[in-house]
Nucleic acid binder design. Structure first.
Lengths: 147, 147
DNA sequence: CTGTGTGCAAACATTTTGCAAGCAG
DNA sequence: CTGCTTGCAAAATGTTTGCACACAG
C-alpha cells in the first residue's frame, strides 16, 4: 500500500536537497531508508536506536536524527504527532490520509479512516464557505490496556 | 456561555478534594479562579505567571501549578491538548467541545460544533476500545474572502 | 497534632546549539 | 577547496522529585 518506491522517494529527497543547497549524505539516506522500511510511528529516540542498529558502521548520533527529522518534516516527507510530555512521533508521509487515536498514558497510536467523518468535514467547510486543503483529527484517550 | 458559576465549580472541587483526602488551599483556589476567569488555553508557565501576578502575596511556585494542573486534569476539571514539541496547553472544562476551521491565508479561525461528528468519534473510540478524554480537529483551508 | 501541601533547588528527560573535524560537490 | 554536515558535549527547555518547613483539618 506504498504510494511510491524507495527509489522514487530518494529522487524526490535528492531534488529537495539540491534545491536548498544541501548535501546528500549516508546518514540522511539511512534515516530515510529506515523510515521507509518501517511504516510505523517513531519517537526520535526509537528511530535513532533502529538506525544505529541497522547501520552500525555509520556511528550515527541522535543529533543527526533530530536534524534530519526536522528537515524531512519541513519539506513534507514525514508528518508528526505531538504527544505532550512524552514528546513527538514521526511517520513517513507515504500513506493516504488517515487519522489517529492516541493513548495519553502509554502513547500507543491507532490509525483509522472514516469516510463519513470526511464527508461531514466537507459539509462543515461548505457551510462556512471554506475551501478545504487539509485537516487534522486526533482522538485522545486511554486504550484498553491502560484503563 | 459558562455552564456553571465559580461557586458551583469550587464546590465540586472541594468535594473532589475531600473524597481523596486532599486539602483545600489558597494556592489551589487561586489557580482554579484564574482558569475560570480566563477561558483560554494556558501553558503551564503562562498560567503560573498570571497567577503570580494576580495573587502576588501567595508567592506561588511553578511546581504547585504543575501539581495542581495534573490534579485537575486527572479529575476532569481541565482538559489538555498537546501542541508542539514543547509543551501542552490546558483549559478549564466548562465549554462544550468545539473544533476549528483555520484559514491558511489570513489566519482567521472559526469555531464550530457538530454533534454528528462527535458521535462518530465516540463510535470509532468504542470500536478500538478507547476511553476518550479529549480530541482535536482542525480543518485547514481558504475562507470565502481569501479564495 | 498529623499528615498533606508548598517553595526551593536539584534531578530528569528531551531537544537544540556551539564547535572542530570530516566529507560532498 | 568551500562550506555544509557530523558527533560530541554543553546548553536550553519543560517537567518532576526530594526535602524541610508551613498549615489545613
Amino acid at each position: 500500500m506504498k504510494i511510491m518506491s524507495f527509489e522514487e522517494l530518494l529522487e524526490e529527497f535528492k531534488k529537495l536537497l539540491k534545491n536548498n543547497g544541501l548535501k546528500f549524505t549516508a546518514q540522511r539516506e539511512a534515516i530515510l531508508q529506515t523510515l521507509y522500511d518501517n511504516p510505523k510511528h517513531f519517537t526520535s529516540e526509537s528511530l535513532y536506536l533502529l538506525v544505529k542498529q541497522s547501520y552500525p558502521k555509520l556511528n550515527i548520533g541522535i543529533t543527526t536524527v533530530y536534524r534530519t527529522l526536522n528537515l524531512l518534516e519541513d519539506n513534507g516527507l514525514v508528518t508528526s504527532i505531538s504527544l505532550g510530555v512524552q514528546g513527538k512521533k514521526f511517520e513517513i508521509a507515504l500513506k493516504p490520509h488517515h487519522d489517529h487515536l492516541i493513548c495519553e498514558k502509554c502513547g500507543k497510536i491507532v490509525e483509522f479512516e472514516d469516510d463519513e467523518i470526511e464527508q461531514l468535514q466537507h459539509d462543515i467547510a461548505n457551510m462556512y464557505e471554506f475551501q478545504l486543503t487539509n485537516h487534522l483529527m486526533q482522538l485522545y484517550g486511554h486504550c484498553k490496556e491502560c484503563q
